[in-house]
Simulated assay, not measured.
Amino acid sequence: MFLSGQSEPILVPEVSESRIEVRQGFTGADLLLYGAIVDPAGPGATADYDIVVVLKGPTEPIRLREKERIAGIWMNAGDSDFRSAPSFFAVASSRPISEIVDPRTAAIYELGTNFIQLSPSGMIDPQVQARFARGLVDMRQRAGLYKQDAEGVRIKQGVLYQARIALPSNVTTGPYTAETFAIANGRVVASATAEIEVVKVGLEGQVVVAAQRWSPLYGLGAILLSLGMGWLAGRLFARL
């Protein structure tokens, strides 16, 4: 997708890998997102542009539970459901976001981990919802799944840009989108999107495909395998 006018720049994005294969022993991947800023006014006119790259993984529903210490015992004190939360979210920018756009613009384009658009399910107090949202972001930041780099984009000669975003080993497979924004004077003047696919291959990939295509048989096989392993373990312990 491009946002451009007669006098607005155009972004031409590229990614180092449009398909990332997750095999047994996968330790993560280093993704390079790069491209060019094409400005009708000429190369020198792009010197004042900032670049922000937002990489998002597949969305998924999630339930958060809050624990509280009651009578010396940790117990569930509350919970909240989100219909869609990105499994992975990373932002890289040429400068701190607060120096590039105002909070309203950052919220519209999700330019930062503080501006991730979550979809809560059911009726919940706004303050409680905000607390659970902060908890979700903090939890996934500690897992390396949400991250933000205020100096993660390099711009060369006002035309070429590049950003590196590391994908950890625990990433969710599925379609990823890399959105790149060119910003001038606090306004998004151009944007473009690149697609990335993270897939499981090998034996793990075959298991995933089997589970999706033949889910009833897959479930029955899993039950039979569990029963067989339990029976075998019982026989071994009986002999010992």
Rank of each mutant, 00 (worst) to 15 (best):
F2P: 11
L3P: 01
S4L: 05
G5Y: 01
E8W: 13
V12K: 10
P13L: 07
E14T: 06
V22K: 07
R23S: 14
G25E: 10
G25A: 12
G28L: 06
D30L: 12
D30F: 00
L31P: 01
L31G: 04
L31K: 06
L32G: 07
L33Q: 09
A36I: 02
A36F: 13
I37C: 04
I37H: 09
P40Y: 04
G42N: 10
T46W: 00
T46I: 00
T46L: 08
T59A: 05
T59N: 10
E60C: 02
P61E: 06
L64S: 03
R65S: 14
R65W: 00
E66V: 01
N76C: 01
A77Q: 06
D79N: 08
D79E: 15
D79V: 00
S80Y: 15
R83G: 15
A85K: 07
A85F: 08
A85L: 11
P86Q: 06
F88K: 02
F89P: 00
A90E: 03
S93N: 04
S94I: 03
S94E: 08
S94D: 04
P96N: 02
S98M: 04
E99V: 00
I100T: 02
V101I: 06
T105Y: 06
A106D: 07
A107M: 05
I108H: 12
E110Y: 00
L111F: 06
G112T: 11
I116Q: 04
Q117R: 15
Q117I: 07
P120Y: 12
D125Y: 02
P126L: 03
Q129T: 09
R134Q: 13
R134K: 11
G135R: 05
M139K: 15
Q141G: 14
Q141P: 00
R142T: 11
R142F: 05
A143Y: 14
L145A: 07
K147V: 01
K147R: 15
D149C: 03
A150I: 02
E151K: 06
E151Y: 11
E151A: 13
G152T: 08
V153C: 06
V153S: 04
R154Q: 11
I155N: 02
G158K: 04
G158L: 11
V159Y: 02
Q162I: 01
A163Q: 02
A163C: 02
R164I: 03
R164D: 00
R164V: 05
P168H: 00
P168W: 00
S169E: 08
S169I: 00
N170I: 13
N170R: 06
A178P: 10
A178S: 12
A184I: 04
A184F: 01
A184Q: 11
N185P: 00
N185D: 12
V188R: 07
V188P: 03
V189K: 11
S191D: 09
T193V: 15
I196N: 09
I196F: 01
V201I: 15
A210G: 05
P216E: 01
P216D: 02
L217H: 07
Y218C: 03
G219F: 03
G219I: 12
A222G: 12
L224C: 09
S226P: 01
A233L: 10
A233D: 04
L236Y: 13
A238V: 10
A238W: 07
A238R: 14
L240A: 14
L240E: 15
